[in-house]
Amino acid sequence: MPLAPDALAPLTFLVVDDEAFMRTLISRVLKGLGAATVIPCEDGRAALDIVPTGADVILCDLNMPGMDGVEFLRHLTQTPFMGAVVLISGEDQRVLSTAENLAKAHDLNVLGALSKPITPAGLSDLLAKLGDDGLAGRRRQGPVDRITEDDLRRGIENDDLVVFFQPKVRVRDRKVVGVESLVRWQHQTRGLVPPMAFIPVAEDLGLIDALTDSVYAKAVRQGGRWLTAGHDIKVAVNISVDSLTRFDLPEMIVATAAAEGLDPSHIVLEVTESRLMHDIRSSLEILTRLRLKGVGLSIDDFGTGHSSLHQLKRIPFTELKIDRAFVFGAARDPAARAILDSSVGLARSLGMSTVAEGAETQEDWDLVESLGVDMVQGYVVAKPMPADQFDAWLTAWEA
């Protein structure tokens, strides 16, 4: 999306670079894009004195004498800064990517990173995200307030959990072949609560099975409706490793699907190992029995956490979901592209289908298509949405 006219005029930009020439160049580029207020600063320490007076966007060099850009980012998190960050460097791309990941780990609103010399087009593309995501002037988001046990129990008992669906689109013909079912909580006072606020609570308190049963039942009910309407869509549901000690899980999965008219082959269980499998014998038995019954198994967020090559070796997965860290922007990140390419080759050699998760741009789509990825799931196709919105979107997509 191009930068809107006059979008930058109300914002204050802070340019932190030890080279006078670069400060001047970046300031001129910003003003050429419509910025009215640009404050040049020669080092990180001086910049920290300016930040509290008000800055919407900070453009920061990494390699500076004294306080370098990486140290500056750490100190920036201790200030009341509420804006966005653009990283700039003449270092190699891997150093730049690592610094970008570090800034995100600090919960800073990172628009992206640019190699020197910067270009008006490159900077304009990053600053366009200010309008897309509302990053300017937004306070950094800390951890979401976690839900209490009593609150969560009431939410499950009152059937307050809702399911959003994000499409999986086959790359070769752009056909919608599946969805991932994503839980949200329509809280009576907090509004729509994201899963990060309550899934860990459910796992810690032993409520994850009840939560999973509710989400799964709603997801397959919708899958049955789609099948009746003539849409052959596989339904994927996330399963916590904490649920892989339930010996009745395979029967529950198949019976619940059958009650909605779905064959087990229409079901995919996505396993994300955010936590280690403590009882590997039970987990292996349950996952193997699910495969024997025809249920698909997906290793989610491959390349992160405990989702490893070892798990691919010992568990009969049918689908490999490549984490967004290796998809979004991989066309401009050689390391991410290499991992993406090798993951696709690995999956192909194991007879598994691949899903590129987190693709957001046409550039991402073009790359995964050229590498032979089977399916794409990400904002380049559609965001997660409730079932009624999904139906309207599907009609428009197929048209």
Rank of each mutant, 00 (worst) to 15 (best):
residue 266 H to E: 01
residue 231 H to A: 07
residue 270 E to Y: 08
residue 283 S to R: 01
residue 230 G to E: 09
residue 277 M to D: 00
residue 259 A to K: 15
residue 268 V to G: 01
residue 268 V to D: 11
residue 251 E to W: 04
residue 235 V to L: 13
residue 227 L to P: 04
residue 233 I to S: 03
residue 243 S to W: 00
residue 227 L to Y: 04
residue 270 E to A: 09
residue 245 T to E: 07
residue 274 S to F: 00
residue 261 G to S: 12
residue 274 S to I: 01
residue 236 A to R: 04
residue 259 A to G: 06
residue 275 R to W: 00
residue 233 I to H: 07
residue 277 M to S: 10
residue 270 E to S: 06
residue 238 N to M: 05
residue 281 R to M: 05
residue 238 N to R: 12
residue 267 I to W: 07
residue 232 D to E: 14
residue 239 I to S: 05
residue 270 E to Q: 12
residue 256 T to K: 12
residue 228 T to C: 02
residue 236 A to N: 12
residue 270 E to R: 07
residue 254 V to W: 10
residue 235 V to A: 02
residue 233 I to W: 05
residue 255 A to M: 09
residue 272 T to C: 02
residue 256 T to A: 09
residue 226 W to F: 10
residue 279 D to K: 07
residue 235 V to R: 03
residue 258 A to T: 14
residue 237 V to W: 02
residue 280 I to D: 08
residue 280 I to W: 02
residue 275 R to P: 01
residue 228 T to M: 04
residue 228 T to V: 13
residue 231 H to I: 00
residue 270 E to I: 09
residue 246 R to T: 02
residue 281 R to S: 10
residue 248 D to H: 12
residue 279 D to C: 03
residue 252 M to G: 02
residue 228 T to S: 13
residue 282 S to A: 15
residue 265 S to V: 12
residue 227 L to E: 00
residue 250 P to G: 04
residue 276 L to M: 11
residue 231 H to S: 07
residue 226 W to E: 01
residue 259 A to V: 12
residue 265 S to K: 15
residue 237 V to M: 04
residue 248 D to Y: 04
residue 283 S to V: 09
residue 245 T to R: 13
residue 273 E to G: 04
residue 282 S to N: 08
residue 239 I to F: 10
residue 228 T to N: 07
residue 241 V to S: 13
residue 264 P to K: 13
residue 242 D to Q: 14
residue 277 M to R: 00
residue 254 V to K: 09
residue 283 S to G: 14
residue 276 L to C: 03
residue 230 G to A: 06
residue 228 T to D: 11
residue 254 V to A: 11
residue 250 P to K: 06
residue 235 V to T: 14
residue 261 G to M: 08
residue 262 L to W: 10
residue 232 D to Y: 04
residue 249 L to C: 04
residue 243 S to I: 00
residue 242 D to G: 04
residue 272 T to L: 12
residue 229 A to S: 11
residue 243 S to D: 13
residue 242 D to E: 06
residue 226 W to N: 02
residue 274 S to A: 09
residue 270 E to M: 07
residue 256 T to R: 14
residue 248 D to I: 05
residue 250 P to Y: 08
residue 233 I to L: 12
residue 232 D to K: 13
residue 231 H to E: 09
residue 283 S to T: 15
residue 268 V to F: 01
residue 227 L to A: 08
residue 269 L to T: 03
residue 263 D to I: 03
residue 234 K to P: 01
residue 260 E to F: 11
residue 228 T to W: 00
residue 274 S to R: 15
residue 237 V to P: 05
residue 232 D to S: 12
residue 271 V to G: 03
residue 282 S to L: 11
residue 230 G to H: 08
residue 240 S to G: 03
residue 262 L to V: 11
residue 283 S to Y: 02
residue 233 I to R: 06
residue 268 V to S: 03
residue 247 F to N: 10
residue 255 A to L: 06
